[in-house]
């Protein structure tokens, strides 16, 4: 087991290099660079930038060098000083920008994950055990409803209702007075009072699909002979459900951890933009559009690292939970 983990960790190093290089190339592939975009932005507000200024800017940002040199410089900065470069657009160190957003992203993602699982798993089990009952049909109707409504639409509608009917101010995660204030108990409470809306919106669609998956998993397990054996032992229906089929039906969810982690960053872009949330996803989108390559590159690198770590964690957990994987 330990050997397996070490081997996997060592493999992560070349994978990260390969992916980060690929990401760097991909970001540079579209014609032009940050300066072109920058000039275009200025031009749209009727400011004219002459060629010399552009060249000076390129030189300042190091954009006149070859791509390989730029990449090596960037990666060396990360390895030697933990320096991810300076964001062209924000004129701030990339690491600072990312970490500032990551904390809130994490809070939001965890909150919606917990909400999703807490709602979906029990309902999925109920739907499977009471297959074709009225309750099952009701939840099925709800899940298809939840699956088919685009989450940004749900966000708009809920925002409208909250603002017009209840007069609440729902954009962002903080009230204006706390936006720049240092952390305090009052700011925490403010955050909690505003968190429910994005969490609810994000949870609806993922809950819907999770209920279907859980129901299908349970339906696969329920007719298995070991369930009958447990019943013939005299276990109560609830106890045997929890101990046997549920335990095995949960295994596939452990595998999903692999893509839950990268989703922290890149998931729910549209909802975050609609609700004006200060999370990582809108920043990533903006960086890509502006060809702000150090910022975008750092994000892509982070997503890759999280994917690799996520799949390692899910593999280790699966082995811990399922002896068939651990021992064979």
């Amino acid at each position: 087991m330990l050997k397996f983990i070490i081997k996997r960790l060592l493999w992560m190093i070349p994978s990260l290099f390969a992916v980060s290089f690929l990401a760097f190339v991909l970001i540079q592939l579209p014609p032009g660079d940050f300066v072109t975009t920058y000039i275009a932005t200025l031009a749209s507000s009727n400011e004219v930038v002459d060629q010399n200024t552009a060249a000076a800017l390129r030189e300042r940002f190091g954009l006149d060098q070859s791509m390989l040199v730029q990449y090596l410089k960037w990666i060396w900065g990360i390895l030697s000083r933990g320096d991810f470069g300076i964001s062209f657009e924000w004129q701030q160190p990339v690491s600072g920008l990312i970490w500032e957003r990551m904390a809130l992203t994490l809070v939001l993602a965890l909150a919606s994950l917990i909400a999703t699982w807490a709602i979906a798993l029990p309902i999925g089990v109920y739907s499977a055990v009471k297959k074709y009952s009225i309750g099952d049909y009701a939840f099925t109707a709800f899940t298809f409803f939840g699956l088919s409504i685009p989450s940004f639409l749900l966000a708009l509608v809920l925002m409208y209702i909250a603002a017009v009917e209840f007069g609440a101010d729902v954009g962002g995660l903080f009230s204006p007075e706390f936006e720049t204030a240092p952390w305090s108990i009052a700011k925490m409470l403010d955050l909690l009072s505003r968190l429910w809306l994005p969490v609810a919106i994000l949870a609806v669609s993922s809950t819907a699909s999770l209920i279907r998956v859980m129901r299908a998993n349970m339906l696969d397990e329920l007719p298995k002979p070991y369930v009958t054996t447990a019943r013939a032992k005299g276990l109560s229906e609830f106890r045997l459900l929890i101990k046997y089929p549920l335990r095995i039906a949960l295994n596939p969810f452990i595998s999903t951890i692999a893509w839950l982690l990268p989703n922290l960053i890149s998931g729910s872009v549209v909802v975050a933009i609609v609700l004006n949330l200060p999370t990582a996803a809108p920043l990533l989108l903006q960086a890509l559009m502006a060809q702000d390559m150090y910022l975008a590159g750092a994000f892509v690198l982070l997503i890759c690292a999280l994917t690799l770590i996520g799949s390692l964690i899910s593999d280790i957990l699966l082995a811990l939970v399922d002896p068939r994987i651990r021992l064979e």
């Binding site: 002979p225 070991y226 447990a230 109560s236 046997y244 335990r247 939970v321 002896p323 068939r324």
Partner: peptide
């Protein structure tokens, strides 16, 4: 009936492999 199952009357099945849980000792 649960008090009868496993105590007064016990049962064994055809497929011992699938009749035992794969993830419990």
């Amino acid at each position: 009936i649960r008090a009868v199952r496993g105590r007064d009357i016990a049962m064994i099945f055809q497929e011992p492999m699938s009749s035992l849980s794969p993830v419990h000792t």
